[in-house]
Amino acid sequence: MMLKLEGMSKHFGGVKAVDDVSLTMNEGEIFGLIGPNGSGKSTTINLITGLYAPTSGTVSLEGRDLTALAQHERTALGVARTFQNIRLFGNLSVAENLWVAQNGHKQRRQHFISRWFKAGGLQDTNIDELLRFSRLHSKKDSLASALSFGEMRRLEMARALASNPKVLLLDEPAAGASIEDGQLLGERIRAVRDRGVSILLIEHMMELVMGITDRMAVLNFGRKIAEGTPSDIQSNPDVRAAYLGTKNKNKEPADA
């Protein structure tokens, strides 16, 4: 398996943002993570990347325990992410955004001088290829803050790919996009998977999640309430209850 979470919990004071969640992602899989607002999806990503330290539980990548590692060490091992609210380096050019993100395993093994101070490092073939893949090549010298919303989303995903990750964590990549954009995004995510990257997708746009994920899990109030293929999930009564609510079966009789 690729990525494995075991008994992961994160409590903020009395709030159990993530509560005893276990997940297993296989290699080459597009794995969906859905749930109502505040159900702990983003917190789960933050636990996987190491932005938060878990209250309990472990996370491992290809059998290697990541729990005690710092964020930059996890990136080197192959974890990359995007943010729900796009976080680009707006003061750098498009190409430079990819340049500074070259912190993967192979890139780290380069000689100190060539990694940090090499002349013409910006003309790297890896950067060039990613720019073309993301259809941003014509914009490579403009400031990231000058891009359109869609271009920013594409750049953020390209930046995450610049470290040659094994797992890419996408936090609501379709937020703010139209249905048509969502379909294009689905193709892009598949294309990324075809590059050999496993994907964990958090998303509210159900057409997208149901359409492209191989398997998915549902969180509610920090707990995992279901896991399975998209069709399993669609017919799962607990999931329907979480999203749509339930008839209160224990309603007290009016005149008891």
């Binding site: 990347t49 932005l51 710092a70 964020q71 930059h72 996890r74 990136t75 080197a76 990359a80 992410r81 943010f83 976080r87 680009l88 380096f89 707006g90 003061n91 750098l92 430079e96 955004n97 340049w99 500074v100 993100a101 070259q102 912190n103 993967g104 990694r115 940090w116 101070f117 090499k118 002349a119 490092g121 910006l122 930046r159 995450a160 610049a162 470290s163």
Partner: peptide, 28 residues
Amino acid sequence: WVDNTRAGAVLRAVGHDEVAAQSVGLNL
């Protein structure tokens, strides 16, 4: 010269957004 190398871009990246800088694998 340093400003125009990757090291310079990295300094600016950290200055712009520390959370994003960490997420792309920079050791703050």
